[in-house]
Every structure is written in C-alpha cells, then in structure tokens.
Amino acid sequence: MRIRSGLLAVTAAAALVGAAPSPTSYTEADFARVAKLDAHVHANRDAPDFGQVARRDGFELLSINVDYPDFPPLARQAEIAYKDHAADPKHFHFATTFSMDGFGTPQWTAQAEHAVDEGFAHGAVAVKVWKNIGMIAKDASGRRVFLDDPRFDPVMRHIQARGVPLIAHQGEPKNCWLPLDKMTTDNDRTYFSEHPEYYMFKHPEEPSYERLMAVRDRFVARHPKLAFDGAHMASLEWSVDELAAFLDRFPNAVVDLAARMSQVQVQSNANHAKVREFFVKYQDRLMYGTDLTDSPPDPAARAQNPPTTGDFAKEADETWRSDWRYLATPLSQPIAAIKADAPGLALPREVIDKIYYRNARRFFHLDG
C-alpha cells in the first residue's frame, strides 16, 4: 500500500551512487524476470487483481490472515485465502491465525488449536499472531495479555509439532512512542495520527516499547525450536545494529521487511556502507515483504501503513519496483516518506535471490 510520490518521474538519468552497476548486481531491467516472493501481504478481496499483477511482476504471494479490526472478519479472510490458494497453489500461499476472543477461558486453547488446524487443512504454511497481543487483548478477568503468557504454550507446542512457523507482529515501529515531529517517516505520522488507539505516545499508561520487545524476546527464548518470523523487521526497524543483535541471539528467528523500507532508507542515507553490510551479513535471515493490502473499498477507511492510493494494481507495481531499485541497484530515487532521495544498495545477485525468494521458500517449507 505504499506510494512514493514522483516515483514514475525517476528516469535512467537519475543519479548513480559510486561505480556503475556491477555484473554481480541486477538492474531495473531484470525486475520482472527474476523469481520473487512477497512474504507479507494481505489479500482481503475476492478478486483476481492481486494475483494478476503479482504474476506479471514475477511474484509469488504469502497472504497473512490477521485479527485486525480494519480488515474483514477472520472467517471472510480465511474464505478468500482458501479460494485463492486452491485456484493457484504455486503462486498463492497464506498464513492462518486464531482469535483472542475468550482467552483465559477453559475452552480457548481447544478453539485456537481448531482454528489453526482448519487453516492447515486448507494449505496454510504459517500462523500469525498480531500486535493486539500486548497492546489491546485482555483475558477473561480483564487483564492485559502478553505473548510470553504461559497460557499460549499449548498452542505454540501444537504449532511447533506441525512443523509450521509462527509470524509475530509484536509492538510497533519505535516512532509509535515518539511525538509526531520526532518521527522519522511520514507514513508513520499519518498512520498513528489516524489510529490513536495504537499511538503509544498518547498513552503513557500503556506498555513501553522496551517492555514489548523484552516480552517478545522472552517468548522466542522459551520456544527455541519454534521457527519464528519477526514481522516488520521484528519492530527493530530503527536500528540495523539492534536487529543484528536480535538475530545473533535467536538462531531460530528470521525477519521480514514489510512496511519498514523507509526506516531502512533513513539509516542507509546516514551510513550507506553499514546498512549494505548488514544485508550482506544477514542475507540468510531476511525475507522481502511489503504489507501491501488489497481490501474492499471503504470510503470511511482510515489511513494504513503503508498508505493506500485507490489504484491497487498500480500501487503494488510501483512499490515492488521502487524496492527493487533500492535493494538491487545503485540507482537513487525520491522517497516521499522521508522527503529525501535514497541511493540504492546494489546488493549482489545471490543476496537478492535469497532475500526475495529462496529464504521464504525454505523457511515456509514451500520447496517440499
């Protein structure tokens, strides 16, 4: 759902950074022909558009069902995922989830396990837990629920026994705890302005960023054999150093890049070599994702992060091409979210192939 204003105006005359493209790097012309997988999207509309633009641009999709009030109900998300996967199992994959309704009641564990088993029966390759755990959800007695709550353990053991990874969106960008004028990206300013219930700067009584990250780390440490995908760069998007430390500490963890590319670009504009070295060093632990969301039109819908434009196919194509230009080539481009140009990282082809395709295929057991 991201859009960079002025992206279409970028031409071959855009500034190059450093040397000309190396034979070891891809070019913009390689974009559509290279196999790619967007490991974090949301297909919430029963329509062919998402699949069509994905196939045209050389993408497989991993659509993630999530218990998010701005999305269709979970049953409707599941219905769409089952249909799309059955129609094109080679290109459309999905993650299932469970509801937090009734957490803490005697029947909740069985309900959650039944929900994920239903997803597995229809081809789900992962299970998603969302930021409502830690930021919103309460148990039957009215107490806030955190992911390291031992009442989750039976469900997590159930998922691990099936050999299925967990995708966890815990916390939010660190910008969420900052005043608007201190945030590093405009997309975060817009999203949190329109979602005040998630804007933690306005809720000092709520858990701190540091507490939510500590909870997540305790959870990962307690489940060392559970394959763990930290969605949105594990909410450590603000610092490649912090993310490196997380990956070093937890060998069972990977992260996706969904909806956090602009925060990475802020860092690479400050220290290009450092960010490039991070991507090269952790090339086996990073998966490309966007958070692109194709939802039914709703004139009352609030801003999303990344934002919607009203023309989903155009939006998806521009987002994918912009990210490719940044990660795969040395070319510079204007990034509206940071009000600056961002020179590309020109990652080696073998690194791009892992981040864009091979890591997700391996992690989600898509290769058999």
Rank of each mutant, 00 (worst) to 15 (best):
F103E: 02
L327D: 06
P297Y: 05
V125H: 09
P89H: 00
P150T: 04
G368V: 08
F192C: 05
R362T: 12
V53Y: 01
L74Q: 11
I159H: 02
V125M: 01
D229W: 07
N252K: 11
V53G: 00
L166T: 08
F363W: 12
N359Q: 10
L16T: 14
K90V: 12
F71K: 05
R144P: 12
N305I: 12
Q265P: 05
F250D: 02
A110S: 13
D88R: 01
A14L: 07
E118K: 15
V66E: 09
S193F: 10
E172H: 13
R216T: 10
A95E: 00
P150K: 06
V116K: 08
D323A: 11
A15D: 11
T11H: 13
M1E: 04
H232R: 11
T97W: 06
L345A: 10
M213I: 15
P21W: 01
R285F: 03
T290P: 04
Y282C: 09
Q107W: 11
K83M: 04
T27H: 07
K36W: 03
G289C: 03
A337E: 14
G171W: 04
D188N: 15
S268V: 09
H40E: 02
Y191R: 01
P179F: 02
P306Q: 07
A313P: 02
E277R: 15
Y26A: 09
L327M: 15
R4G: 04
A115Y: 04
G163C: 10
N252Y: 06
V264F: 12
N269P: 09
V275D: 09
I133D: 00
F278V: 07
D311C: 06
A300V: 06
L180K: 15
P196L: 02
V34I: 14
I352K: 08
L16M: 12
S63Y: 05
N175K: 04
P330H: 03
Y26L: 11
W324S: 07
Y26H: 11
L62S: 04
P73E: 11
F279G: 04
N175V: 02
P330Y: 01
Y68L: 13
D248R: 11
R162L: 06
L257E: 00
G289S: 08
H85Q: 05
P204I: 07
V129M: 13
K174G: 00
P207E: 01
T11G: 15
A124P: 03
G310Q: 05
D181V: 12
D88E: 06
A214S: 12
M183R: 14
A9G: 15
A227P: 10
